[in-house]
Amino acid sequence: MRESFDGAGNSGYIIQPAATVASMAPSFSTVQDVDLRVQPVDEVLDRVARSLQTRFHEGTVVRKRRSVGAHTDRDTWVRIERRSLDKITDQGWNGTERAARLKGVAMPTWRQCVVWQDEDGPVMWRADETSLLPGAPVGSAVLSDAPDLPEEWWSGLNASLDALTGHQTGRVATPDTEAITQDLVTTSIRDVFSDGFDTTVRRWTPAHADLNWANMTAPVFSLFDWEDWGSAPQGLDSASLWAASLAVPALADRVRQERRHDFESRDGKLMTLFVCSKILGLHAHPQDPRREPARRMADQVVEGLQAG
């Protein structure tokens, strides 16, 4: 379950094709279908390099489904994202820039950005330049093997998440690029789980909204990719990280232990069901190894909520 990194290389970029990704290449019939792991991006990289007056080091380009990143010649990192206009809310599309004001949260320092609208369709591109990460990402978004994390890493995670929830923001979190609202929480839970309990969220706090193992570094803790952060139900980040850990039971248990004050809260229980709905719902992968542990935990949570 690791992200596939690939690309093509000239103008200072080395991107190596990945047959497993290319074999699953989607048709580009709609804006949402474009996958930057297989879509040509040389012109985009050239444009960003010119605009930011920098060059990208060869062999450092990392390609994901909707973003591309690279190491610059001034020892910074540039992350480029493509997003359709209908996925850009009224609050704008400057999450990484706005996150720069968050105190007490370990993250790269934001430097500058460039934004433009695509000439060929209702799409915008955004490139944010930040300081380099203090280490490599822990792994892929969803882990299948336990990472070797020092105790200081867990302390850093807790300190940053606790500091984040102490802030205030008018932004709305957009996990999976969709604004999280009370209606979304209720609909997501009701589509998968039985009735008989209230789904009303009581406490909304700032959240990263894309907390997974690919967006944190180790052995020094740092949290990056802030484009979707904003107000969300208490426990969204903790539940998201737990869900990304379910294929490694000991790791999932450690996440619940470290963030137990979130999971023990009523809103944290609702967020557990919210993330489980994505693993167990209609469009979930039938061979996802997280399905059984998610089902077991969801049953316990539902039973507890129904009991009041």
Rank of each mutant, 00 (worst) to 15 (best):
G135C: 03
T54N: 00
A22M: 12
Y13H: 15
W93R: 06
T72A: 00
T217L: 10
N10V: 08
T60Y: 11
A100R: 13
G166E: 05
R291P: 05
S131K: 00
R2H: 03
Q91I: 07
T169V: 05
R171L: 13
L143K: 02
V138Q: 12
E129V: 05
I14G: 13
R65S: 05
V62Y: 12
T177Y: 08
T96I: 10
G9I: 05
A127H: 13
Q112N: 04
G135S: 06
H261S: 02
E129N: 14
A243N: 07
G196Y: 09
G69P: 00
N94D: 11
R63M: 10
C276W: 11
T169I: 13
C276A: 15
L149Q: 06
D288G: 03
R202C: 00
D228V: 13
N215Q: 04
F274E: 14
M124W: 02
D225W: 09
W226A: 01
S51I: 02
G9Y: 10
R254M: 09
R83A: 11
D90H: 14
T54S: 00
S240Q: 15
A49Y: 07
V220F: 08
D267M: 01
T186C: 02
A22Y: 04
D73E: 10
V105Q: 03
A209T: 06
D253F: 11
F197C: 03
